[in-house]
Design a protein around this nucleic acid. Structure first.
Length: 425
RNA sequence: GGAGGAAUGGGUGAGUGGCUGAAACCACCGGUUUGCUAAACCGACGUACGGGUAACCCUGUACCGCGGGUUCGAAUCCCGCUUCCUCCGCCA
């Protein structure tokens, strides 16, 4: 959620940012509506506060009169207060309505893209920030896609997952299961080495947390919901980890707060099925190591770059062909101000697979979360939040298997040997 | 799951209807003193949304787990919920 104050003070910047997201002039009117409602809210607040102030004043007087035994005068005042009370109750309702509509409108506005975000409407217009210049791995004629490799080497079983749960819940077996565990361990170790605190969060969150990071109310259908207890299965570790700082005022010296967490992620992906979703490309449950940073506004873009470099290092260590995209305004997530996507070349499928997304949300999340910090002058400011996958397992596994297949078996990248305990599959 | 108790500011904890946004102590911050540290003393010390102003500052309102209610007036009384603690039961 954008800060009201930002919309008030920097209307033009917000408008041009929204245009970058291809908002029509019709859509842009919402900004003026917000400002108008804000005016109403403020004047209504004043009105209400004045009523209440008068009530408080009179009530105190009544107390004094009672103490002095002036009972009749007190009774007269009581009647006056009762009248005021009706007025303030009515005004309270008006105010509640205004604030409600204002909030609804605010929720509907996406984050304002950073000035370095390119214009564009479709994924084709994303800017390649770093391309893969070396040749792609050349595979044998009879190269298999990862779902066929999985069968050949007994690495994971999707049909078995259907029996146990349903489509999109793979059962990893043998070396496939071990490879999963190795990757998790590897990613976590790398993150900890890079200074991230390891967090093992709950996998179910309450409504407040889901609201805090914006899964609610917008993406309700994306999450698995345990209605009996009103808890949600996390779609990403971002949700519990970022909510650690919900309603907190941090000290400036606590920033940056760098956290990492491995969790399974659960996504209903309702309606997202179609082509390109075979094998591990899209599943309901997958493993991911996430990195989250809460940072000083002046530092967050530097941090953003360093997170990108961190993910890049993982790619290099895993010897995977990758490219980095700077997403254009039209392809960026709702909450993000700037996003880099990492894609890995899947040699057998001959296509790029998205494996990581590193975003700076600026104050969009923290505004809703109420995550602030006290700066050097003792002023309270909104902190910035950032996160990225480092990384999402299922698709990395797909690429690893496909790219490293040989007639003799599948080669495991050297960086993983100490975790897998084997060098080939 | 059953029975009882509790929830107050960063922490401990007082407060059972008006003078309480909230004592006291601790922590934190600023200052005095000091060779340095420590101690002692003095002072400041919540958040949000408004108004006077653009800022310092002044001021209004709301907030004592959450939501309702009683009352002219609620941290204080009543109802519901949540969480925590103790005991019992169950259990990885």
């Amino acid at each position: 959620m954008l800060q009201l104050k930002t919309i008030r003070d920097e209307k033009q910047r917000i408008l041009s940012g929204l245009r970058k997201r291809n908002w029509t002039s019709q859509q842009l009117k919402v900004v003026d509506n917000i400002l108008l409602l804000d005016e109403n809210r403020r004047s209504g607040q004043k009105l209400l506060d004045d009523f209440l102030a008068e009530q408080n004043r009179l009530s105190k007087q009544i107390g004094q009169m009672m103490a002095q035994g002036k009972k009749e005068e007190a009774e007269a005042l009581k009647a006056q207060v009762s009248q005021l009370k009706e007025k303030s109750k009515a005004q309270e309702d008006v105010q509640r309505t205004t604030e409600g509509s204002l909030e609804t409108l605010l929720y509907s506005v996406p984050n304002c893209p950073h000035k370095t975000v390119p214009k564009g409407k479709t994924p084709e217009e994303n800017k390649v920030a770093k391309d893969w210049t070396k040749p792609f791995p050349t595979l044998p004629e009879d190269a298999l896609a990862h779902w066929d490799l999985a069968k050949k080497y007994n690495l994971f079983d999707l049909e078995l997952g259907v029996k146990l749960t349903g489509a999109g819940f793979p059962v990893y077996r043998g070396k496939g299961a071990r490879l999963q565990r190795a990757l998790i361990q590897f990613f976590l170790d790398e993150a900890v080495k890079a200074g991230f605190e390891e967090i093992a969060p709950p996998l179910l969150v309450n409504e407040d947390s889901a609201r805090g990071t914006g899964q609610l109310p917008d993406k309700e259908g994306q999450m698995y919901h345990c209605t009996v207890d009103n808890l949600y299965l996390i779609p990403t570790a971002e949700v519990p980890v970022t909510n650690i700082v919900r309603d907190e005022i941090l000290a400036e010296k606590d920033l940056p707060m760098k956290m990492t967490a491995y969790t399974p992620c659960f996504r209903r992906e309702a309606g997202a099925w179609g082509a390109h979703v075979r094998g591990l490309n899209r599943v309901h449950q997958f493993d991911k190591v996430e990195i989250v940073v809460i940072d000083h506004p002046e530092q967050s873009y530097k941090t953003h770059q360093s997170m990108v470099r961190h993910v890049e290092k993982l790619m290099v260590k895993l010897a995977l062909p990758y490219r980095i995209l700077l997403l254009c305004g039209g392809d960026m997530g709702f909450a993000s101000a700037k996003t880099y996507d990492f894609e890995v070349w899947s040699a057998a499928q001959k296509r790029w697979l998205e494996v990581s997304s590193v975003s700076n949300f600026e104050t969009f999340q923290t505004n809703r979360l109420k995550t602030r910090f006290r700066d050097a002058n003792g002023q309270i400011q909104m902190a910035h939040s950032l996160n990225g996958s480092a990384m999402a397992l299922a698709r990395i596994v797909a690429a690893l298997l496909e790219n490293n297949q040989t007639a003799e078996g599948i080669n495991i990248p050297k960086a993983l040997w100490k975790y897998t305990g084997f060098k080939t599959i």
